[in-house]
Design a protein around this nucleic acid. Structure first.
Lengths: 109, 109
DNA sequence: ATAATTAATCGTAATATTGCAATGCATTAT
DNA sequence: ATAATGCATTGCAATATTACGATTAATTAT
């Protein structure tokens, strides 16, 4: 097995879990934080700053791009990445609804 | 390898990614939603409602418990699970800070 | 005491993820 | 044209995840 049975869940559950999985890695969180701070895009800077090999960074960037969380455009010889505002908002909304649905007044156990 | 190099990231980055990973699965999202709806705790109900085997559900519950997101107490022959308010709040705060740090005014690419 | 019920755990198979060296592919500089 | 630079892709090894049948452990009912 090792294969998630996504067909038994709702589209919303699958979509949210996909987005969450994309950001559920310290390297990808670090990458996103770095992109957000220097709002102006970056790329190979990450390789120098995080302690990971270039191939590894590139792979993490690809995952974030595939999930639609970031977008990249070729800028001469380097590539410029930035947040995809649409997906970011979607994540905020979906996650806000999910987390906000719990009102922790009455804990039972 | 297949082993995350967590030593090169901050505690906050590691903690947030651990929490996110715990909820980044459609089954675990479904479980949490079910727990939240029937605020009163459940357990084996999940096995009937989600289309997963008992062993699988139990494993997902264990992961959520290990991450501190839910807590369970033995209630006679069955086990009662509910949200751990403390961790839930921590997740909301950490995630809110992270997602909120992006102000999507100026997209660059 | 025995049976039934509930859930955790073990063992196993299939698949996914993480990380990197090596290589390939553009684009810019010489 | 050639070299250099920046990134993506490929191939590979190690580890993690997902799922489930079978078993076990504990509690309740008979």
């Amino acid at each position: 097995m090792g294969l998630t049975k996504s067909e038994i869940f709702t589209d919303e559950q699958n979509q949210l879990s996909t987005l969450l999985k994309a950001i559920a890695h310290p390297a990808r969180i670090a990458i996103l934080q770095r992109i957000i701070i220097s709002n102006t895009c970056i790329c190979g800077d990450l390789v120098g700053e995080l302690g990971l090999a270039q191939a590894t960074i590139s792979q993490h960037l690809k995952e974030l791009k595939t999930a639609g969380i970031i977008q990249g455009t070729i800028e001469g010889v380097s590539v410029c990445y930035c947040i995809n505002p649409k997906t970011w908002k979607l994540l905020e909304d979906q996650l806000g609804a999910f987390l906000g649905s719990y009102k922790g007044e009455t804990s039972c156990c």
